[in-house]
Design a protein around this nucleic acid. Structure first.
Lengths: 188, 188
DNA sequence: TCCTTTCTTGACTAAACATTCCAAAATTGG
DNA sequence: CCAATTTTGGAATGTTTAGTCAAGAAAGGA
């Protein structure tokens, strides 16, 4: 069991994630992090190395959690197409909070190998699960059969990003729901 | 006519746009700007005010040019649906270069009223032109009649962002073309 | 030619920054 | 209750930053 004195590493990381989501890497200072994480400056450096490693850890943790949440909801429903629908609905519902994945890709593109690796792992995991579920939905006649599951998964993920950017730009819920509806329309 | 000694303000702004596209606002230093723009430090402050005003001017100029390019290609073809198709193709073709519009929305969201205003103007102009062309395509039977032109325009713009993020994340041309194809499929 | 205006250059300031150091306080295991 | 371990917060360090200043070079007009 964890000692009570030591601060909760994952809880602190979650606080860091919140800050990075709102301000990006360059827009976040170590002071902001220390205050939000409610740990001493030295603890931050002892536990996470430096600002960059903390950011990398935050992105990794976020990507893992987000991927897991996606996959979980995707598989929850009996009918594959319902799982897909609920996955999109969830993106709409959560879109008000900035996505750290989108943020880090926007900020760094492919310039940091460490980040690219994190994104690749999450991307592969998510899309593999999606492809299986899409094929299932195709077999059930709920998703158009002429499209490859790979294409469909890529398209949906791109639309997640599109919905999130629209939300960050100020689009309201109805607007986002309309985007989701049309994305779904493309594949059914 | 412009004097020959004075540097070209718009040319310098274009150079600034290039830097901001790649590194964002926070990731760009005034040194980087001065070097890329090939003007003296003092000239930068005299001409553009400060780093933030320069950024705002860059985003505004970029948004205006990008909107204009979109609309121009949208209207070039005789058939409305062909204009729409070519507009999407252009996004795919240019997607390798980071979009400053997407970048600034990602970095600042709605936190800076000055930026929100710039984006709103561009957004309104582009979508108005798109709605007209979409209605035209619907009348010709090339775009599904059951959808409102407003919805379709919003959907396409969101997919532009999705395609651009995918490209920034490393997707190759074939991947982007597939995204474009599916987006078009949703509305035809 | 001289004068005015504009651009450049490099040095400068002052603040913010990430990171390290240190000593005190807190917490735990024994 | 003691000793080892951690956490903390403030001070210190050295770098980077945005922005200013002042002297000089280039150009154009008279």
């Amino acid at each position: 069991m964890a000692r009570s004195k030591e601060f909760d590493r994952e809880q602190a990381l979650d606080a860091a994630i919140d800050v990075f989501r709102d301000h990006g890497f360059e827009g976040t200072s170590t002071d902001m992090l220390v205050k939000s994480m409610r740990i001493g400056r030295q603890s931050l450096y002892d536990t996470f190395g430096d600002k960059w490693q903390l950011y990398r850890s935050a992105v990794e943790r976020y990507a893992t959690a987000e991927t897991h949440a996606h996959i979980e909801i995707l598989r929850r429903e009996g009918q594959a197409v319902d799982g897909i629908r609920q996955m999109i609905d969830r993106v709409v519902e959560e879109a008000r909070r900035t996505c750290l994945g989108v943020g880090s890709i926007c900020e760094f593109g492919q310039t940091r190998a460490e980040l690219v690796a994190v994104h690749q792992v999450a991307d592969r995991r998510l899309k593999e699960a999606m492809r299986r579920r899409i094929a299932e939905a195709q077999a059930a006649g709920d998703v158009v059969a002429g499209l490859s599951p790979v294409e469909v998964a890529d398209f949906l993920v791109a639309n997640f990003a599109g919905i999130r950017i629209a939300a960050r730009g100020g689009a309201d819920r109805a607007h986002l729901q309309s985007l989701a509806r049309l994305a779904l329309r493309a594949i059914t």
